[in-house]
């Protein structure tokens, strides 16, 4: 259990580490170029690992609905926008506002799909996130 806790926390650290490094590359190039290299290097690493463990071509590789394969394209825009933001508003502001957006859109997606869940808890969560996001804003 301790091991799982460390792994899950480290995964979060790596998300922010990646954005910090890509942000630095974007300062010297452009956010889109940084996103490009992020995907090239990530692909190379995953290909190497996949060749070693033989996981590159599993059964069902092409069975998902076509639009599910757009995840990578969305990821390019996600990495580019994060690399642009982090140099301008800092790591913690970028992390919190992106997480906030992720949560609010997640709740919206659940509503659209009619997924099970506590509606009141979600509403309270969204309200707290919006209050926190408002607090990050510049003073007039």
């Amino acid at each position: 259990m301790i091991e799982a806790i460390l792994i899950a926390t480290l995964a979060g650290v790596l998300v922010s580490l990646s954005r910090q490094i890509n942000g630095r590359l974007a300062v010297s190039t452009t956010p889109l170029v940084a996103s490009f290299w992020n995907h090239v290097v990530g692909f190379a690493v995953l290909t190497a690992i996949g060749l070693v463990i033989g996981a590159l071509w599993p059964a069902g590789a092409f069975s998902a609905p076509w639009y599910a394969y757009l995840g990578g394209t969305i990821g390019v825009i996600f990495v580019a926008s994060g690399s642009w933001l982090i140099a301008r508003i800092g790591a913690i502001n970028t992390a919190m506002l992106v997480i906030g957006g992720q949560m609010v859109f997640g709740v919206a997606l659940d509503l659209v799909r009619g997924a099970e869940g506590h509606v009141l808890a979600s509403a309270l969560g969204v309200a707290l996130i919006i209050a926190g996001a408002a607090l990050t804003q510049r003073r007039r």
Partner: peptide, 23 residues
């Protein structure tokens, strides 16, 4: 501090993340 534009971009980026994780 973030401007309203920064906030909207970050929130939109988080929304893309939701979609990406889902896909």
């Amino acid at each position: 501090r973030p401007s309203p534009f920064h906030l909207l971009l970050a929130f939109g980026s988080g929304g893309l993340l939701t979609l990406m994780v889902d896909f």
